[in-house]
Design a binder for these strands. Structure first.
Lengths: 247, 247
DNA sequence: GTGTTCGATATGTCTATACATATAATCACG
DNA sequence: CGTGATTATATGTATAGACATATCGAACAC
C-alpha cells in the first residue's frame, strides 16, 4: 500500500505526531471517498508495518476515529468505515447578548416582567416537575441597535437553582446569568414557526400574523429540570445555522 | 482521596474495565457539580496512586474525556474541567421518508417538476459554484397519511454528481436517493421562518400567510458543492428537535 | 522594577510486551 | 445436513519505561 512515511529523524522532522499522521491519513481516505462506508480498513498489524510503528500507536489513532464515530471496530473481524449517521449537524446557540455583540451591534435589554410564585399546574407541566415549589417567571426583550431582536419567556425552578433568588434580572438577562452561574448537563431544543400574536407583534414591532421562529429550550442538571424558556425571533430576519464537518 | 477501587482479582471481578471506571468516576464528579468548571482535577501521578494503575491507563481515561471536551489538559499546569461550550446541541435531520415512516404513518411523494439545464446565474449563486455547468432542478412534495408534510425545492450539481442523471426522481425522492448514493463531507443548515406564499400555501394546503418552518441545506464533498435544497414545513405542525447530553 | 534564563514538572507520544476477550471460521459429530 | 464445540485471529486493556515538549516560577541579570 506504500503508506510508509518519512521518519528519517524520528522526532525532529515530523511536525504532527505519528499517531496524528495516521489518524489524518485514514480520515482523508474516508472523507475523500477512497474508502467508502463499509470498507474494511487495514488490520492494525498491517498499519503497523505500513507506518513502521508499534501497535499501540496505530491503536491510538483508530481509537480516536472510533470515538468520533468515523469507523467501527469489531473484534476478530477488523475495522470498518461507518456510514454517515443520517444528516446530523451541530447547532450552536450562544446566548443572545453574545450573539448580538459578536455581530458588532449594540445590545439592548428590557425586563418586562419578573415575578416569583409557587408553581401552578401550568408551570409544573412546563418545567416537567412533579411536586410544587417556588419558581421565577421572567419576560424580557433583547434588541440589537435598538431594534427588537427577540422576546424571551422563561421559567426558573427556584428549588433547583436557589441562587437565582438573589440575581438581578433587571441588570443582566437571565440567559446570560444562568449560563455563567449554573452548570447544566442536558438540554433539549424544539424549533418551530408560529404567527406573531398581538402581544408578540407589539413587543417585536412587527405586524400581527408575521412569521416567527420559536426556540423552546429545556435545561436539566442530572435529570432535574432547571429552566424552560421560549424565545421568539422575527422569522425572516433571523436564521439559525447548524454545521456538520466530517471529522 | 480514598479513590482506591476493588481489584482483588484484577481481570475477573471488574465488570467495566479499569480505564472506563476512571473515566466514569471523573465524569460523574464533573456532571454532579462536585468538580465545577475550572476545577483542577488530580494530576496523573495522583490518579495513578489512587487507582493503583499505570500512567498510560489514567492517560487513556483523561484523553477520552478531553476528546469529548469535558476537560482541558495543559502541560505543566494540569487538567481542568471545561466550562460547558455555550449551548450547543446535536440536530439530527433524517430524510423525510424515514422520518414519516418512523412515526408509523404512510409516506406519500409527488414529483412536481424535474428539469435539467445549464446553470444560470441564480443557480450558480444558490449552489455557490463559479463556472457554469449542468444542474438538475427538482420540485416535489412529501406527505404523511395523504396530508401534505413538506415541499422541497432542490438543485443538484450534475458535474459533481453525474450519477444523478440516471436516477428516477419520479420513483424515489431526491433526498433519499442522494443520502444512499452520494457520500458528503460537509453540510450546512439554515433554519428560518417565513409566511406561506400562494404557491407554498396551495402545495401544503394551508392558508396563504401561514407560518412555515424553512430549512435551507447545502451539502459539499471535499469543499465542492453537491446540492442545495429548501424544505418548507407547515410551521405549527412541525418541530425540529435538538438534544445535548453532557458526556 | 523589568526582562531573561533556566530548571522543575505535568502532560504528550511512543515502544515492546503480555494477556484478555469477542467472534468468524472451521471441524467433528450425531 | 445442520449443529455444537474448537481454534485462530483481531481488537481491547494494561504495564513499565523512555524521551519529548510546553510552560510556570523562581533565580538571575540589568
Amino acid at each position: 500500500m506504500s503508506l510508509a512515511i518519512d521518519r528519517s529523524k524520528p522526532q525532529l522532522t515530523d511536525k504532527p505526531t505519528l499517531y496524528k499522521q495516521i489518524r489524518l491519513d485514514i480520515e482523508r481516505r474516508i472523507l475523500s471517498g477512497e474508502w467508502p462506508p463499509g470498507h474494511r480498513i487495514p488490520f492494525e498489524h498491517e498499519l503497523m508495518a505500513d507506518y513502521r510503528c508499534s501497535r499501540m500507536t496505530v491503536s491510538k489513532a483508530l481509537s480516536e476515529l472510533a470515538q468520533a464515530d468515523l469507523i467501527e471496530r469489531r473484534r476478530r473481524a477488523g475495522t470498518f468505515v461507518r456510514r454517515p449517521k443520517f444528516l446530523s449537524a451541530v447547532l450552536t446557540i450562544s446566548d443572545i447578548r453574545a450573539e448580538i455583540t459578536a455581530l458588532g451591534r449594540s445590545y439592548g435589554y428590557q425586563l418586562i416582567k419578573c415575578s416569583r410564585r409557587i408553581a401552578n399546574a401550568t408551570d409544573r407541566i412546563r418545567l416537567g416537575v412533579g411536586k410544587t415549589g417556588k419558581v421565577i417567571a421572567i419576560a424580557c426583550r433583547h434588541s440589537a441597535d435598538a431594534v427588537p431582536f427577540a422576546i424571551e419567556d422563561r421559567l426558573i425552578d427556584l428549588d433547583a437553582v436557589p441562587e437565582a433568588a438573589t440575581a438581578d434580572f433587571a441588570a443582566e438577562p437571565p440567559g446570560s446569568w444562568l449560563l455563567h452561574h449554573v452548570p447544566w448537563t442536558e438540554a433539549e431544543h424544539a424549533i418551530s414557526a408560529i404567527s406573531a400574536d398581538d402581544e408578540a407583534a407589539a413587543s417585536l414591532d412587527i405586524p400581527i400574523g408575521a412569521p416567527c421562529l420559536v426556540i423552546d429550550r429545556h435545561t436539566w442538571r442530572g435529570g432535574r429540570p432547571l429552566t424552560a424558556v421560549r424565545l421568539i425571533y422575527p422569522g425572516e430576519s433571523h436564521k439559525l445555522v447548524a454545521r456538520f464537518k466530517g471529522g
